[in-house]
């Protein structure tokens, strides 16, 4: 039986859950690369160009880790969710870069709603490539979507309940592949939790609501994941004490979107930009003073 490798980066944080359920239902063995560590980071640096964004460098590291441990790598391409919801160009080019950099075969599908390429079509294509019949794949797809929806709703409820907390509440505005990455967001989350801060995650909102809300801050914004993030700020703005913008250096959409949002919102905020040479000590100092400022505002 063939084994599918899933790099733990970028797409994984949006679709990993669906993939896992899909492959489990079809009983396809799969391997997910471990949490990002120094070894994976170094592999990524070896294969990447020095101007690539930190998240993409680690993604290449994950792919490099998996290249001799599986038969197929799963690397989709996400172009757009209709014209006003496009993605960063790294999401467009990941498949072609991986395909040209590594020897391993790549399982691939394309999401391009403007041209009728949707997730369902993509997963069916993958199922067929792995030799399953249509009916079984459809079942697996429905199962995976249902499970994923349940998991997502649960996470959203937990996240929204945090807005009622009496602790200092901070909205962490960041892409999930940065937030939950061990070398990027983990230390920050750990530090905030130690300091008794309630963290609200910008990616765990109902995207149908936040995506539209983003229009209040920016009319022309057309990056899907940035729109979801921006919308979450508007959704939560009266219930939170501060906002932390976290991005990977040099993220294309964030460089403009975060700049615009920071100029427009009136909530206290800081902007953290991490690259492969950042040390946590510097970040820690900034987080410490930010929390102090927020608490000072609350108690006066």
């Amino acid at each position: 039986m063939v084994k599918v490798g899933i790099p733990r980066g970028l797409f994984y944080y949006y679709y990993g859950n669906i993939w896992k359920h899909f492959f489990k239902f079809l009983k396809i063995p799969y391997i997910i690369s471990p949490n990002t560590n120094k070894d994976i980071m170094n592999r990524g640096l070896k294969y990447s160009n020095d101007e690539m964004c930190l998240a993409f460098k680690t993604y290449l590291g994950h792919a490099a880790y998996l290249q001799d441990k599986c038969d197929y790598l799963l690397v989709p391409r996400i172009d757009n969710f209709k014209q006003d919801n496009q993605t960063c160009t790294n999401f467009l080019s990941a498949y072609d870069i991986i395909h040209n950099t590594f020897e391993v075969k790549v399982l691939n599908y394309n999401i391009d709603l403007e041209h009728g390429e949707a997730l369902k079509k993509g997963l069916i294509k993958i199922g067929k490539e792995l030799g399953f019949d249509k009916q079984k794949i459809h079942q697996a797809y429905r199962y995976a979507m249902k499970k994923n929806e349940e998991d997502k709703q649960r996470e959203i409820t937990i996240n929204l309940n945090k807005l009622k907390s009496t602790k200092t509440k901070i909205l962490l505005v960041s892409h999930p592949y940065n937030t939950y990455d061990d070398l990027i967001g983990k230390e920050i989350i750990k530090y905030l939790k130690q300091n008794d801060v309630e963290i609200i995650y910008s990616d765990k909102f109902d995207e149908k609501i936040t995506n539209k809300l983003s229009l209040n801050l920016s009319k022309d914004l057309y990056f899907k994941y940035s729109r979801d993030n921006v919308g979450s700020i508007i959704y939560a703005k009266d219930k939170i004490d501060g906002v932390i913008f976290l991005s990977a250096f040099p993220c294309g959409p964030d460089s403009l979107v975060n700049e615009l949002v920071m100029r427009k919102i009136k909530i206290p905020h800081i902007n953290l930009v991490l690259d492969d040479t950042s040390s946590f000590t510097g970040t820690e100092t900034r987080l410490e003073s930010f929390i102090d400022v927020l608490r000072g505002l609350n108690h006066d």
């Binding site: 160009n49 101007e51 690539m52 467009l92 080019s93 040209n100």
Partner: peptide, 16 residues
């Protein structure tokens, strides 16, 4: 120009 994301993606393939 620096940080041009699409071209950064193209560079490894051009090189190849």
């Amino acid at each position: 120009s620096s940080f041009c994301t699409p071209e950064i993606g193209a560079m490894p393939i051009i090189n190849k």
